[in-house]
Design a protein around this nucleic acid. Structure first.
Lengths: 350, 350
DNA sequence: AGCTACCTTTGGATCGTTCTAATTCGGTAT
DNA sequence: ATACCGAATTAGAACGATCCAAAGGTAGCT
């Protein structure tokens, strides 16, 4: 309770050097485990380090060496479990490599993204991992980041044209292949009339997933009715509302590939309201494998992007880039995995 | 695609100074908006700053001024939506104050906590917000942190005795009051036989919540059967398994105050398996208000700690502490709010 | 002794900023 | 002339580390 702890003046190399009468340079060598220093003096110095409770000042070292030991992680939505898990993965791998994570949240606002990016840049991160906000565009990002630090784009493409000389790396999910897997799975279960449900046309991920669906359908020589593509905002509520659109014509589809888990859960709600039992009378799949997917009624067949692993991968990619700054920029597409649960039943036998 | 972008050498004050033939000092004054500089030269300098694309090197400034512009945020589990939301709140408020968040995840390991803390300390944060790992203890934390930076404990108490001279601030949730509110609510709905379900005895939050439950029961002069306190790990699965313990004696309780939402959701599962409809035949409450709580079958009555607001509050507390390092350490207890949903029905009328 | 070689240690400059104590300069009072 | 003023600018030493070139010491060999 006492308020009388003088905040300890920080111990520096000079204090240690003075404390055991060697030079600053020697202490520095000891710290970095150089083989140059005599083991006798090393012991003395190490003892003194302990005694005075020295803590290394990485900022000073970074200044002198013109290096950095931090990576900025800028996320559009930390509240989303997918990104939280991703962040945990990033932080873990960075930590293992001796880097520290500078966090920044943009809350899906391109304006905040600008502010966050330039604020973080002042702290001189060695690189940046950015999951862009909804309407963020390449031009503004370039203006904020410049060539100060390499950038890795995650999860979303940037609006606008990619500037020629900014060689940014990318880590994206294999939306197309994922949707294809889901569709093929439904086909294998015996479905022939399969709809694509939810999402917005102008979102790149939705277009990609739809393309995967089309691919699978065509490969199986199944016809795609145009009114089987139903657009809606990727929320539970909207999806529930749009359920009826699925049954506006006969014969109605017996299954749907949904844009994501939220939409799929909404569709389940809508089906229940129509007296149809999802996973019994109608099959459906999601995308993302959010926590609720496994717990739904019924549990949802979906695609997992393994967000934690993606975080680790992102960290590795940016660290690699630090290691060879001049290498060609690369675009990595992470595969997604089909998680089969009960929602993807065979079609009713009637 | 070209690999030929030389990473731009960083522009410094010297470059700007040379570029418009003033001294480094003047440029520095301009940057910090000092009234000393003539507005004509200010304009010239600002033009040059833009022209060369200068970015401020806060690390260098911090070194010189012996200040810091970062706060370390060390969390036991970023994967938990509660902490993710908390982190978002912290980052937001810190950002607004011109600080940057250094993230560190410990994954509930006290060993990793040690490593993370000392790694983060080397980056010289101005303060630390720590939500301790499960078995973290005061002694080790003190050893890692020393007096380098003020510490704010969040959410959990540390094991071991609080060292006398380390005046650490605390921000805790009002577990006891929350559990009391939930219990009182069930009593008001007409329940008389109420159990306390889940959690571990050795966790401080569980003890506090149980105390609140006892308080409410005693205030209402209701008897508490000892076998109505059922211990289990705070996971869905464990909770489902322990459900039968509730009904091992007659008359069985008609309601349960659960340690947290995960446990409550597990209990719902267990009830369903016994043919009991939660929210109809048996009432229950949770704690935390995780996202799934609102979407459960039925929606779960629970206590919300408003994690985002707690994050903002934590950030404010640590910033205050930076402002007056010598003030007495304080312990803040954040109130929690009862969210009434359908799971807390009146007892069956039979 | 002188020369080389090796092992260890070190002074001083440096990274990019800020701070302190001048310094410059036109103008005004003495 | 001299002194003094205020406003604007600046040289140079910090901050805490690292790097470089050079120096001190010991040992072996002519």
């Amino acid at each position: 309770m006492s308020s009388h702890t003088p905040i300890g003046r920080k111990v520096t190399l000079n204090d240690i050097a003075a404390g055991c009468s060697v030079s600053r340079a020697t202490v520095s060598l000891v710290l970095r485990g150089s083989p140059l220093v005599n083991k006798h003096t090393r012991a003395r110095v190490e003892e003194e380090l302990r005694r005075q409770g020295y803590v290394y000042n990485r900022a000073a070292a970074n200044l002198r060496r013109r290096t950095s030991s931090s990576i900025a992680l800028v996320l559009n939505d930390l509240t989303n479990p997918f990104f939280a898990e991703f962040a945990a993965g990033v932080d873990q791998t960075l930590g293992e490599a001796g880097f520290v994570t500078l966090l920044g949240c943009t809350s899906e606002s391109a304006t905040r993204e600008q502010a966050v990016l330039s604020s973080l840049l002042e702290h001189g991160p060695g690189g940046i991992i950015l999951s862009p906000a909804e309407h963020s565009n390449a031009h503004d990002v370039l203006a904020a980041v410049g060539t100060q630090a390499p950038l890795l784009l995650f999860n979303r493409e940037l609006g606008g044209t990619m500037p020629e000389f900014a060689h940014w790396d990318q880590l994206m999910l294999d939306n197309q292949h994922g949707a294809r897997l889901a569709t093929e799975h439904l086909i294998a279960r015996g479905h022939r009339r399969i709809a694509f449900f939810g999402g917005h046309l102008d979102s790149s991920s939705c277009r990609q997933r739809h393309a995967g669906y089309v691919q699978a359908m065509q490969a199986a020589r199944l016809t795609i009715e145009p009114h089987w593509r139903i657009e809606c905002a990727p929320t539970r509520l909207e999806a529930a509302h749009q359920t009826s659109a699925l049954f506006s014509s006969t014969p109605a589809p017996t299954a749907a590939v949904c844009y994501n888990d939220a939409v799929a859960l909404g569709l389940m709600l809508g089906l229940n309201q129509r007296g149809l039992r999802p996973g019994k009378d109608f099959a459906l799949t999601g995308f993302d494998d959010i926590a609720e997917a496994a717990l739904g009624m019924p549990p949802l067949t979906t695609l997992s992007a393994a967000p934690r692993e993606r975080g680790q991968q992102a960290a590795q990619l940016i660290l690699q880039r630090l290691h060879e700054p001049q290498a060609d920029s690369r675009k990595t597409i992470a595969s997604v995995q089909l998680i089969v649960r009960e929602s993807s039943c065979p079609p009713p036998t009637t």
